[in-house]
């Protein structure tokens, strides 16, 4: 049940990424290239996704618990710190260099393009390396 529902959620997300044009780095980079070959399409992607989620969450979060789990697991962090801003700034630079964000690159694997496989491999290495450093730092803090 959990596996099937996760697959269906992923499928809807993947179809959305695919038909919206988010899946295409040329289109994503053009959204940011206001001074050049600008393509404003992504405003509509973000707008459609945000409004739908905003309205949907109002209804869903009113319930006592989710359908197949015991409780809601919402992010609890509240600090706006250097880690959040610095990490997001670095993410934006990488996004501007390659044209892929994680949520677009995973569905793009379905296109079978070797460049996407390369991007996702590099992304996973980056994720893994950053987690490793974070774990080491946490360990050092715990020792002190």
């Amino acid at each position: 049940m959990r596996l099937l529902s996760a697959f269906i959620v992923g499928l809807i997300f993947g179809v959305g990424i695919a038909i919206s044009g988010m899946i295409n780095p040329a289109k994503v980079l053009n959204f940011f290239d206001i001074a050049g070959t600008w393509d404003p399409s992504l405003i509509f992607v973000m707008g459609g996704a945000l409004v739908t989620t905003f309205i949907g969450y109002r209804f869903v979060l009113r319930r006592d618990k989710p359908a197949i789990e015991e409780r809601f697991q919402l992010p609890t962090a509240r600090d706006i710190d250097a880690r959040l801003v610095g990490g997001s700034a670095v993410f934006g630079i990488g996004w501007g260099i390659a044209g892929f964000c994680p949520g677009a690159a995973v569905p793009a694997l379905g296109s079978g393009k070797v460049e996407v496989v390369g991007f996702v491999a590099a992304l996973l290495v980056g994720l893994w390396a950053a987690r490793l450093v974070q774990a080491k730092q946490a360990g050092r803090k715990a020792m002190a």
Partner: peptide
């Protein structure tokens, strides 16, 4: 592609 992917991985983890 390679540099961008790696940087995105670092950035989204910290962010």
């Amino acid at each position: 592609i390679a540099v961008g992917g790696f940087i995105v991985g670092i950035g989204v983890t910290y962010g």
